[in-house]
């Protein structure tokens, strides 16, 4: 009898260990292998700057209300209150101690596209790597090169202040298993080159879907409602639908959308409001061809 109990206990232990091993295998941080980031040419700084504005880095990583050249000091420190706790934005200036000056391209690239920090830890998806995941290694390299040209700041940002169990980074492996994807968000029928460029900008560096797509209770994007708008994750009000089915911008032409992104004016000369003001100001630095591409893509996605 004792021997049967022991055997059962052993079998139980094996199942638990095997289960834990499988769970760990599925949810461990998964950076790209080193060769993914090897063999890239010297960074194209002009392209890096375009990606810097498309990605909206300043809106979180610069000081609040920074203007002009102050916007290029990515000292971090801003607090982002959320349902999970308060995130404190890190310093990504080239300071080797307080910032990312000592990071390698692979470390930067794995943070951007895999949500894995330099210690091999999971990063919180408040940093929109689940969008940046679509960025090409070349673009990541160009952006990294550009960020290194910006002023260094010695500011040391506070650690995140999150409630249990969100303060355990290991839980992020499960979140990634459920919601992380580098695949296209929508299947487009024979998209033109300009629509493809728009898809890259909107779904990748521009990370538009992070606010314009509604989320479920676990903070995952409801991708069947891609860009359909929803409650504002940062407070009062709603984020508008920006698909062709939108009641606000569905009637706008591609030219109207591109002009809005460039100037901040709607077709009837109303202005952008809320957090979109900063987004629009960032996007106004993009080449007009890129704004036209974003507009073309927004007209090509399914109406919601």
């Amino acid at each position: 009898m004792a021997s049967i109990t022991a055997k059962l206990a052993l079998a139980g232990a094996i199942v638990v260990v095997a289960g834990a091993a499988v769970a760990y295998g599925l949810t461990r941080p998964q950076p790209y292998p080193a060769e993914h980031w090897a063999g890239l040419a010297a960074p194209d700084l002009a392209n890096g700057e375009t990606l810097f504005w498309a990605g909206g880095c300043v809106s979180c990583h610069a000081q609040k209300d920074a203007k002009g050249e102050e916007q290029k000091v990515l000292s971090g420190g801003r607090a982002l209150p959320t349902a999970f706790g308060t995130f404190h934005v890190p310093n990504i200036s080239p300071d080797p101690k307080a910032g990312i000056g000592a990071w390698t391209l692979a470390e930067f690239g794995n943070a951007m596209t895999r949500g894995v920090g330099p210690e091999g830890e999971h990063l919180y998806p408040s940093f929109p790597y689940s969008s940046y995941a679509r960025m090409t290694p070349k673009d990541v390299n160009d952006l990294f090169g550009y960020l290194k040209t910006l002023p260094a700041s010695p500011n040391v940002a506070s650690p995140h202040d999150l409630s249990f169990p969100f303060n355990l980074r290991v839980t992020l492996g499960g979140w990634k298993l459920l919601f992380f994807s580098a695949e296209p968000r929508v299947a487009l029928n024979a998209p033109s080159e300009i629509v493809k460029r728009g898809q890259y900008l909107v779904e990748g560096p521009g990370h538009c879907g992070e606010c314009h797509t509604p989320r479920n209770a676990l903070g995952g994007l409801q991708t069947d409602q891609w860009l359909a708008g929803g409650p504002n994750p940062e407070g009062e009000g709603r984020i508008p639908d920006i698909t062709p089915g939108s009641q606000t911008i569905g009637s706008w032409s591609e030219g109207d959308i591109a002009n809005y992104l460039e100037t901040g004016f709607t077709p009837d000369f109303d202005s952008a409001g809320g957090s979109m003001v900063e987004v629009q100001q960032n996007l106004s630095h993009l080449p007009k061809s890129d704004l036209a591409a974003i507009a073309a893509y927004l007209k090509a996605v399914p109406a919601r």
């Binding site: 009000g237 709603r238 901040g264 952008a272 409001g273 809320g274 957090s275 979109m276 003001v277 100001q281």
Partner: peptide, 12 residues
Amino acid sequence: CGTCHQAYRLKR
């Protein structure tokens, strides 16, 4: 317009 709407208008 943008500066004020950023801070004080709920509509995006």
